[in-house]
């Protein structure tokens, strides 16, 4: 086996491994990363909501369909959560990234470089940065049912849904 062949074999092996690592292992614990989100009964936002969960919630990973993870919550309920809303690891996150206890090691792992709450605190001392309005803006949220009724009334239907 010459050097080139060896190299390509290594590349292939590496890439296969990369694909295999893309999803977490079944049974491992994952953590909610967005401030709050819904766990749905089906892998779709148009299904009914099982529970509302907050940042830092731990759940057990059971499998995936497209961009959705099937999870078991600590209450024993099973549902689906969107992949973009979780970290594939067990981390101790506070409910708000700006909270006072948020300087934990895990928080730093996620927002470790550049911007983090302590920088924000420094900036808010200056006149030009007022975060109170931003905080209030973040409080506003509609529930899934309101949006579904709104879609029904407006004759809106998602045109394409991933078939699993």
């Amino acid at each position: 086996m010459n050097r080139k062949t060896l190299l390509s074999v290594i590349i292939v092996a590496f890439l296969t491994a990369a694909v295999a690592w893309a999803a977490p292992r079944i049974g491992s614990v994952i953590t909610v990363r967005s401030l709050n989100t819904q766990v749905m009964s089906e892998p779709s936002f148009l299904s009914s909501s099982v529970a509302k969960v907050y940042r830092g919630t731990h759940m057990t990973y059971l499998g995936r369909k497209g961009a959705w993870y099937k999870v078991r919550m600590s209450s024993g309920k099973i549902g689906w959560i969107h992949r973009s809303r979780v970290v594939d690891k067990m981390l101790n996150l506070s409910r708000r990234p700006g909270a006072s206890d948020s300087s934990s090691k895990d928080e730093v792992e996620l927002a470790r470089r550049g911007f983090n709450p302590s920088i924000e605190q420094q900036m808010s001392r200056e006149k030009n940065y007022n975060y109170t309005y931003v905080d209030r803006m973040e409080k506003i949220q509609l529930d899934v049912k309101t949006v579904k009724d709104f879609m029904l009334q407006g004759k809106l239907r998602f045109r394409a849904v991933v078939r699993k």
């Binding site: 990363r33 990234p97 996620l110 927002a111 470089r113 550049g114 911007f115 983090n116 709450p117 920088i119 924000e120 900036m123 808010s124 006149k127 030009n128 940065y129 007022n130 975060y131 309005y133 931003v134 803006m137």
Partner: peptide, 17 residues
């Protein structure tokens, strides 16, 4: 995404004030 969140907060705070 966390860093982008904090960048966005600061940008919005700047715009709004």
């Amino acid at each position: 995404p966390e860093e982008e969140y904090f960048i966005g907060r600061s940008v919005s705070a700047a715009v709004m004030s």
